[in-house]
Write a protein that binds this DNA or RNA. Structure first.
Lengths: 158, 158
DNA sequence: TAGGTTGGGTTCCTTTTTGGAACCTGTCAA
DNA sequence: TTGACAGGTTCCAAAAAGGAACCCAACCTA
């Protein structure tokens, strides 16, 4: 399978990765969540080549994850901002950062910490069950085929 | 910057992506979480080329995300399993799947659902604050430089 | 005992993607 | 008039992915 066909897979993870799963997109989105908005600022911070950056930004705009909005006229200059759809990638970013903090940090600890505005504390993201509110780990989960997909059950699960 | 230098960045997200951030690794890990363990089963399910698969599995083993263990002698055959470090990527997988369910699903709905064994319900992952237990979104978070990184504060944040 | 199958790869070659640098286009300021 | 700035695009070389074929040890089976 070509990577380009990922979005046709009957798998939400594959479809998500077809948008954010290439080498640079998540790093661009990290900067978006930090408040970076302009082309040249992305370029400076990421050290990514301009034409890959331009293409990734275009793709994120096409998918409705970012939108362009002018911040000056004459000449028109536009900046990139997260849409609501983009903001909803925050749990993904938090989970990636948390794993890195736990498993890839050096003796200096986490480069960046997250403060929860409501409680004022430095926080780690915890994934809980939407029904009972208890923390969930991989071992607490059983996977089943979705109700619209019974016919593909044998293909979806090993 | 080359993508290969991501792991040297003072950023936990970049370091995490240096392990799981290429085109196929997360899809391989999705299958690991579904219980796939053998080379040929990965190949059949993913339709990925054998040599990319072999390289990705090797890299995940090198990083301690998977380990190889024999399931028969004569001839020795080994399978790949998630280590504890690998199991801790579960929140990342859940967050990616949830975003896909929300934003990339078709009329048939989620191909796969997650049942929380403890409460028996189909669940969605919710990210909450480790201190106060309240759900957090992007707008609830303020970012600060980690205590070991004050000297780099100007570089880390825009 | 020849021939095929299975699991788990490696090799080789072609096509796509990146990386890196240079170039283009309005607008403004010196 | 030259230069800077923001935001790209173009071009070419280098690296990675895709696809097919090959390898090998140990079975199985006719």
């Amino acid at each position: 399978m070509r990577w380009d066909d990922l979005d046709k897979q009957p798998c939400s993870l594959a479809r998500t990765l077809s948008v954010v799963g290439d080498r640079w997109t998540m790093v661009i989105l990290r900067d978006c969540f930090l408040g970076v908005r302009r082309f040249d600022e992305f370029e400076k911070r990421l050290g990514i080549t301009r034409h890959v950056l331009a293409e990734r930004l275009r793709k994120l705009v096409d998918h409705g994850v970012l939108y362009k909005t002018p911040y000056q006229q004459k000449p028109v200059r536009e900046e990139y901002r997260l849409t609501d759809k983009g903001l909803e990638l925050h749990p993904v970013v938090m989970a990636l950062v948390h794993w890195g903090d736990t498993h890839m940090a050096d003796e200096r600890g986490a480069p960046i910490v997250h403060v929860h505005k409501q409680c004022g504390q430095v926080m780690q993201p915890v994934t809980v069950c939407s029904c009972c509110g208890e923390p969930v780990t991989a071992r607490d989960i059983r996977v089943e085929t979705g109700s619209g997909w019974q016919d593909l059950a044998k293909e979806l699960l090993p």
